[in-house]
Structures are given as C-alpha cells and as structure tokens.
Write a protein that binds this DNA or RNA. Structure first.
Lengths: 115, 115
DNA sequence: ACAAGATACCTCGCCTGTCAAGGTATTTTT
DNA sequence: AAAAATACCTTGACAGGCGAGGTATCTTGT
C-alpha cells in the first residue's frame, strides 16, 4: 500500500499470469497468495484485480469456469491458456529489459539502503 | 519504444530527478541523454516529459529558469531543489522495494534470456 | 440467537499519467 | 529555398488503478 502503485502497474498481468502458471486459482486466493508472498506488504485492490481478469480473458490469455461443490461462497476459477503462457514469457522479458534500463537511468551513485 | 511504457511509468520522475542530480539541464538535452544512455532504446515522448516537468515544479522538486546567451533556440533549464533531492532518495527506495517485490511475485522458475 | 467478520464475487465513475497530434520559433544543413 | 534539427508548449483522447458501493454465503464470537 505504501508503495506507489504506478511502480507495480505494468506488472499486474505478469503477476496474475505467474500465479496461474502454478495452478488454476480464483481472485480471492490469488490475492491472498500475493499477500502471503510479500508478508502482507502487497495485495491488489479488488477492482484492479477483477478488471485485470476481464482484460486477460478478453485477450485470450486465461479462461474461467465456476468452481463446483465448494462449501463456502462460489468461486470463479481461472486457467492460463497456451497463449497466456507465451504472453507470460514475453512479459518476463519485457520486465527484465526495462528493469535494466531503469536501473541504468536512475543510478547516480547514491547509496540507498537496499531491502 | 518497443518496451511497454507502463513499465517505465512510475519511474518517470525518478529518471528526470536522477538526471538533474548531476547537473542543471533542459528538456531536449535530458531526453537526448536518456537516448544515449540506453543506446537509442528509450526516450520520453515530449508531452510526457513536459507534463512531468510541470508536475515536479508544482511539487517543489525542481525550479526552472531561462537559459541566456545560447546560440540556438531558447532553453528552459531545470534545477533540482533540496526537497527534490530528498524525493529522489525516497523514490530510489520505493523502486528497490517494489522491484524486489515484483521479482518475488513474477518468478515461476522459468528461464528467460536475460539482457 | 444474532452480530460481526470472513469468504467471494462484481460494477460505476473518478483520477492520473501517457501520448498522438497539433502548434510556435530559431538555427543549421543541404 | 527547403529541410532538418533544436527547443518549447497545449489539447484531448485513452487506459489502468481504485474508492465506493453492491450482492450472497458461511463461520465465529458473545
């Protein structure tokens, strides 16, 4: 939350696809997984998450189906497609490239407490 | 250009401030410096650049003055303020934090050709 | 028994940053 | 004389994030 979301933006889709690379999942769970992985430091806003799902499904990168026989509230599961896997790889490459570029551009030799 | 600008977004201000940490400069030159540093891979769109200057000046992070006695077209020089230097350090920290977070979230063990 | 919180989904409308497209003015190169 | 480079600026459209609101079910605390 403290961290500017404009820094995460552009990685939203990558993060979701990365999550779905491991297993089919649903919105609420994906968010909880992210929260766990970052020790509670990050979580998508719901509106952001569901907007992203819609965008990814329209792009053919994921498909969805309703989870059955679940005891709790109904869940819409998402599954990554072949196209989605390719996109994930592409996005990873984009990230690596731009990450290196950004580091080149923002470095002035100042020492910052890395974390 | 090839690289999604949503990945750069959020670092725009940091990049400009980093440039001004070294010396006073003006829009056109800052952009050319960025282009040189990235071997022509990146450059801000003019509209983006001038919007950022305005935002940074309104925030008190930079100040501007007209360059005199220059032979070519008139130049508006920008100078980073004390507040701007503090902001730069803060933004660097934000970047480091979110970079680590993103890497944690998008990694699935897939090997990508690093560049 | 009932309220509160957790689980789980969704939409509308605002805000912010990017950028295509347009414009101005001067100097240098062809 | 024309074209390209230097240098600035604004407008309006567009996309993504997200606050605020809504729905429905199940579990937990008192």
């Amino acid at each position: 939350m403290t961290i500017a979301s404009d820094l995460i933006r552009g990685n939203t889709d990558t993060i979701i696809l990365a999550s779905l690379m491991k297993k089919d999942s649903y919105g609420y769970e994906i968010n909880k997984d992210i929260s766990a992985k970052t020790a509670g430091e990050y979580e998508f806003k719901e509106a952001t998450l569901y907007t992203a799902f819609k965008r990814l499904e329209e792009g053919g990168f994921i498909t969805s189906y309703w989870g059955e026989d679940n005891v709790t509230a109904r869940r819409r599961y998402y599954s990554i497609t072949e196209r989605g896997k390719e996109e994930y790889i592409k996005l990873l490459n984009d990230w690596n490239k731009s990450k290196n570029m950004i580091e080149k551009l923002i470095d002035t030799g100042v020492i910052v407490n890395g974390e």
